[in-house]
Design a protein around this nucleic acid. Structure first.
Lengths: 267, 267
DNA sequence: CAGTGGTCTAGACCACTGG
DNA sequence: CAGTGGTCTAGACCACTGC
């Protein structure tokens, strides 16, 4: 699959017929060279050739490796950086993105306090309510690309800000990749859950989709969040994906929004 | 605007000492050439030198005009395209983005039906409930960068899908730019409201920020949305900005989310 | 066919980081 | 200082559009 050197003057690898990644069929499916390079780099990321937080090879090194110009590698990395798979740091190098960095911690959490900012509020207090292994129901299985009855892990937790319970979350994780995850490890780990997933299970969440609604709580939810039955809650259902658009987490959250709001930037 | 030099071509940037940090103070504030070009193009967009839907000059023309290479213009336009200010069409040209295009219509509306897609549901039925001129309250003024008591336009409308009232919205618009907007013109216009703003008032919304919460309706809202008092609603407060990050609209929406959900992509 | 945006290259130089 | 990413240029060629 890698471009092969032929004639010394043959830098411009034939564009159309050169690489036929999947389909040998009708559509020309022209793919620019930098897209192919991007794919190769993504493969290496997925294969953990370089781990989260580490530097990937320099642009020049990659250009030599793939036998293309530095500019082509640059454009490939540009797109990876735009997708947050990688972080560029001038003068230092390009690094595999990680949820463990201070700067991008809680990248997927869009809930902010009405007054002050996230830092003034301090970190959330986390309480694992439950963590058990069970068989996937039909809808959980569908969300995670599993079959009904497959082993999944279910976690329930409460997040509190300034001692006020604010988020009640249920998580479902595929049993295979997350074998060995226990309530204890979740409780003991300090830092974002997605950082734990990276370091302990080699699962890096790359993007996610959320569906929001307004709902009313049931009795159990009222008790856990310490609210009355008529308090409207923001329901946030998230599916998080690793590389390859593989779903690796289903999360159903209930947010108390009298002191916080969910922020979204449109452009 | 700045006085123009007497050279026949007043667009060119000086290449050498032109942008040098004149002040002997702290930050060098290095700005790459392509960023300056981007700024110049944005100025032209803001000044309506090219109108929404029209083509801007070709990359080569702009390169000549600004006396830089095509590659530099290209990188400037790349960023404008990434911010949705402009749309590139291979073989045809680069066009000023508009809310009137089929493809990007309702770009800022993130509400989708649970079953089927937006097209299967057909377009929304729109009903203007109210449209009046009044003085800005303190919070409306703050959101729109006005002073309390300044003239604003307030619009209230209901959107229905498949005859079910789903969205109740209140809008506040600064009185100056939107002088002449009436309930009748809103009712008669078919197409996105932001498209009307473009063609009739020269105001193009470029980005927006939304704050979401779960709330309960009051009696008036219940009546307009034809719901019972205990139906939880998704409250969406939006501030929309034109070029220059100037806020031009405050919008408070209430979404009924039993048949629809608010979708958000995280990355 | 000419004109547009899109890709690719090669080389020069700049800004930033760290030893 | 050497090594990194970041900018800028000039020129070649490709893919797409419309006349």
């Amino acid at each position: 699959m890698q471009p092969t050197p032929n004639s010394p003057d043959d830098h411009a690898l034939g564009n159309a017929g050169e690489v036929a990644p999947t389909s040998a069929s009708a559509t020309p499916a022209f793919s620019p060279l930098y897209q192919q390079i991007k794919g190769l780099i993504m493969n290496s990321l997925q294969a953990s050739e370089w781990k989260p937080g580490e530097a990937i090879p320099s642009e020049m090194e990659l250009a030599v490796r793939y036998r293309v110009s530095q500019g082509t590698v640059r454009k490939a990395i540009d797109e990876l950086a735009a997708e947050n798979l990688v972080v560029r740091r001038q003068g230092k190098g390009t690094f595999v993105a990680t949820h463990a960095e201070r700067q991008v911690q809680y990248r997927f959490l869009k809930l902010f306090p009405d007054h002050g900012d996230a830092s003034s509020e301090g970190p959330a207090q986390r309480q694992i309510v439950d963590c058990k292994r069970l068989r996937a129901s039909a809808d959980v299985a569908r969300s995670l690309n599993l079959r009904t009855g497959d082993a999944v892990l279910q976690v329930r937790r409460v997040l509190s800000f300034s001692k006020a319970p604010t988020i009640l979350e249920d998580l479902w994780l595929p049993g295979g990749p997350f074998k060995g995850l226990t309530a204890e490890r979740l409780t003991d780990y300090h830092g974002p859950m997605y950082a734990l997933f990276e370091t302990e299970f080699g699962v890096r969440m790359v993007r996610a989709q959320e569906k929001l609604r307004a709902v009313l709580p049931d009795e159990v939810q009222c008790a856990l969040l310490k609210i009355t039955p008529h308090t409207p809650l923001l329901s946030v259902e998230r599916i998080a994906y690793t590389y390859n658009d593989t779903p690796m987490e289903l999360r159903r959250g209930l947010y108390v929004t009298d002191q916080h709001y969910y922020r979204n930037e449109l452009s």
